[in-house]
């Protein structure tokens, strides 16, 4: 299935080359876990701070679960950031 992977801030450079707007469409197995994707794109786990599926936060303990993604989902990841 295809999902959109978005990597932001200092993680932007880890997206496949040619990606625009901090996003890339990637093809993944339905059983894949979030941590497997995080590892596959060489995102250091401690920098995968904000992990959102379709805008909803997934806590660290749930990131090894498989089958949490479905076709067309958006997975967005940030290192620790803040502003205001």
């Amino acid at each position: 299935m295809n999902i959109t992977l978005k990597l932001y801030a200092t993680l932007s450079d880890l997206l496949p080359s040619g990606s625009a707007d901090n996003a890339a469409t990637i093809n993944v197995d339905e059983a894949i876990s979030l941590n497997q994707i995080i590892d596959q794109f060489h995102v250091p786990r401690e920098l995968a701070h904000l992990v959102l599926i379709n805008g909803v936060f997934v806590c660290e303990t749930d990131r090894d679960q498989s089958g949490v993604l479905k076709d067309g989902d958006v997975l967005a990841i940030w290192p620790p950031v803040a502003g205001g």
Partner: peptide
């Protein structure tokens, strides 16, 4: 985070 992107890092978040 703040020195590199400033508070503007929040826009996409």
């Amino acid at each position: 985070g703040l020195p590199t992107y400033g508070t503007q890092v929040l826009m996409n978040v």
